[in-house]
């Protein structure tokens, strides 16, 4: 379980006091980082030291520290959430680094995610997209009996794969266009695949994509960096589905057809 090893590390951290002030990198030397602790616990230790020295601790977002709340995330040496595939930065442990390594920590860089302080960015743009279509228009109280609508195991499982997105923003940060398409397409697929979300399938796609564009996210760069960076390994295949749904939705908007779907 325990490696018992200690590492010496040099870390360069982006320090920016507030959104309207310029930022810069600051370098810190850490001489005894246990290889057993997590990346954020390493920053906790640094902060404990900074507080003792009367300095301002490094701000970073975090909460559950088990990879599910989606709060945490920053770039480590240019990689969103660091070098380990399918892993949020809170689940990244120091045993994956070696003695003497130099690490550069930066916040997500994207127009739609303004930096608030140090490694913390504002991701409200994601929620404004969700509020345009990330739901089924059902009221509490009028749900049919759960087994009255059958959902195939494969369909439920695919919907789950898409629903696993934690909205951390790594996909946006990893994309050179700052595109949010992986995030939006995952939500669109999760709801649209299930029969309960099918009636709004096309309307949802159109409304979410339009809000996404309004927020200043870029178009798809086609490099699939987003999938590589995603801690939940969401597939870029969903982007094709979103594009189809969006086009269908726009087409019927123009022709006055009714766009409803039987799902799938």
């Amino acid at each position: 379980m325990s490696t018992g090893k200690n590492l010496r590390l040099t870390i360069e951290v982006w320090r920016q006091a507030s959104p309207d002030q310029p930022g810069r990198f600051e370098t810190y030397e850490l001489d005894a980082v246990s290889a057993d602790i997590s990346f954020l616990e390493m920053l906790d230790q640094l902060n404990e030291r900074l507080i003792k020295e009367g300095k301002d601790p490094v701000a970073f977002e975090h909460d559950c520290r088990e990879g599910i709340c989606g709060s945490c995330g920053f770039m480590i040496n240019g990689q969103a959430h660091g070098p380990l595939r399918g892993t949020t930065v809170c689940q990244l442990h120091m045993r994956h680094f070696h003695d003497g390594e130099r690490l550069v920590l930066e916040p997500w860089r994207a127009q739609a995610f303004p930096v608030r302080k140090d490694l913390v960015v504002d991701r409200d743009s994601f929620d404004r997209i969700m509020a345009k279509g990330g739901y089924n228009s059902t009221r509490v109280g009028n749900a049919p009996e759960a087994n009255s609508i059958l959902v195939g195991k494969e369909t439920a499982s695919k919907a789950f794969d898409a629903a696993a997105c934690i909205a951390c923003g790594a996909c946006v940060a990893a994309c050179k266009n700052g595109s949010a398409l992986l995030f939006v397409s995952a939500k669109n697929a999760h709801l649209g695949l299930l029969p309960q979300g099918a009636p709004e399938r096309y309307r949802r796609a159109v409304r979410m994509v339009e809000q996404m564009e309004k927020e200043g996210f870029g178009g798809c760069s086609n490099t699939l960096e987003c999938e590589a960076a995603c801690p939940k390994q969401i597939s870029t295949g969903w982007i094709q589905r979103l594009t189809r749904d969006y086009i269908r939705g726009k087409t019927v908007e123009d022709t006055g057809e009714v766009a409803e779907s039987g799902g799938g």
Partner: peptide, 22 residues
Amino acid sequence: ANIIDQSVAFGVPFAREYGGTL
């Protein structure tokens, strides 16, 4: 029991059997 109905209606992808039941 009604919580399950409600959650399914909101799109919760619960585990299913091959026949499509929960």
